[in-house]
């Protein structure tokens, strides 16, 4: 009798085994999770929209905007340390670059150096690159570039480029306007 009973118990064990180890009992499912997750997705998108709306509200009117960005190509002749900007003789930006930032620039990034609203009319931008040129006698090196421009009609976007000037003793310091 006990043998019979134990056999039936083992059959139960085997059935249980088959259920738990092979087919796996289904875990409770959430059949109506979809709408809730969709609601969450929409909410997150709207929270992000609020951040964007605030960013737009904080920016100057597009026609008055001047956006200055900086980029560089790695060049052993010049190690960038800092960049200073003046507009109409007034200092408006100064940034010292960390090693991580130089690496991110060398990897193809661009740094937003300045976003400013300017009154409509003529202006002058002065960009000054500070760095080290290991191969020259006086190692400290500063390069300047001036650019005259007009605001009040359209947004101005300029990129300060430090690129490898081919066949020249120093890298090329240039300003490029984007339309």
């Amino acid at each position: 009798m006990i043998r019979q009973f134990l056999f039936s118990l083992f059959s139960l064990c085997l059935l249980t085994l088959a259920a738990s180890s092979w087919a796996q009992e289904p875990a409770p499912s959430a059949p109506d999770a979809g709408p809730l997750l969709h609601e969450a997705g929409q909410l997150f998108a709207e929270v992000q929209d609020l951040a964007v709306a605030w960013e737009v509200a904080r920016q100057p009117a597009p026609r008055d905007q001047l956006l200055v960005l900086l980029s560089l190509q790695p060049d052993e002749r010049f190690t960038l340390q800092a960049v200073a900007l003046e507009i109409d003789g007034e200092p408006v930006a100064f940034h010292e670059y960390s090693t991580a930032e130089i690496e991110a620039l060398a990897a193809g990034g661009a740094h937003r150096l300045l976003l400013k609203g300017l009154p409509a009319g003529r202006h002058e931008l002065l960009a000054r690159w500070h760095g080290k040129a290991p191969k020259v006698k006086k190692e400290e090196m500063v390069r300047e570039l001036r650019w005259a421009f007009r605001t009040g009609e359209a947004r101005r976007v300029v990129e300060l480029e430090l690129s490898q000037g081919e066949g020249q003793p120093f890298p090329r310091f240039a300003l490029r306007e984007w339309h």
């Binding site: 992000q48 960013e55 960005l69 980029s71 990897a107 990034g109 740094h111 976007v157 990129e159």
Partner: peptide, 22 residues
């Protein structure tokens, strides 16, 4: 465009949320 490259630059420096908003 440098504005696109600026987003990559900022994201690579750990400022992805702000870069995304801009």
């Amino acid at each position: 465009d440098p504005q696109i490259r600026a987003a990559r630059f900022e994201a690579s420096l750990g400022e992805a949320p702000a870069a995304l908003v801009r």
